[in-house]
Amino acid sequence: MSQPSLLSEIKDKHHVFSFMQSQASPVLNVDKQILLYLEGLSVSFDGFKAINDLNLYIRDGELRCIIGPNGAGKTTMMDIITGKTKPDTGSAWFGQTINLLELDEPAIAQAGIGRKFQKPTVFESLSVYDNLVLAMPDERLVFSLLFARLKGEQRDRIDEVMTLIGLQDHSAMRAGSLSHGQKQWLEIGMLLMQKPRLLLVDEPVAGMTHQEMDRTAELLVSLSGSHSVVVVEHDMDFVRQLAGKERTVTVLHQGSVLAEGSMDQVQNNQKVIEVYLGESQ
């Protein structure tokens, strides 16, 4: 918030300050079966175009894998969707009614977009249980947080998620002392608690064993349908496992979509092969 606009806010006697306004955003509308619209997005950092005229549509309930070499703009795209970065041009809509570019990170999270980071980020000095409690979407206002108590069904939900992510025996453990893989699971569990409509998952299987990868794939597939899931991943085996025969895979390159289609189509696409294998024509 720049100073001049703050001054004009104060001078206007009818102005309702943003901290007094309720944060409720318009109701999500997915009549057209599309949950996320990214159109003509561009953003550059110091002249480097991280995202260049990116167009991407995610259907409601879809599981979409996004692959691309390093620097393709995958993380920047997630930053834009979650409000961390504002694009120079273009538009980003969540359903037909919610303009993501007008909202900040907490508002976007409350609207129903959850994000899992590449590096597992859990609240290290809190217990596993408390990490899940905080992820619950119910209480976000300072004063209701002060008096918040867990209800029966919320406890059941936490227990359910804790069993699902295999941490039921570690509920009192500090999240910081979990193993790398367990932290990944805890973070996925936190996303589940948050009950987002759209899940953005950045490299979920980094540091996981093959067994754990299979379980993660199973979980993500089971989530699609009721949620839309966007997975950014480097591990091709994992992407193949997730995408199966019919799901769409998007290849990003230099900030825009290079190819889109089933895994087989994408793998046989000449441009994709060039980018990945560095073959010259």
Binding site: K84, A109, Q110, L134, A135, P137, M190, Q194
Partner: peptide, 8 residues
């Protein structure tokens, strides 16, 4: 992280 979880 807490911002992306919806906390102001």
């Amino acid at each position: 992280r807490s911002r992306f979880m919806g906390y102001r």
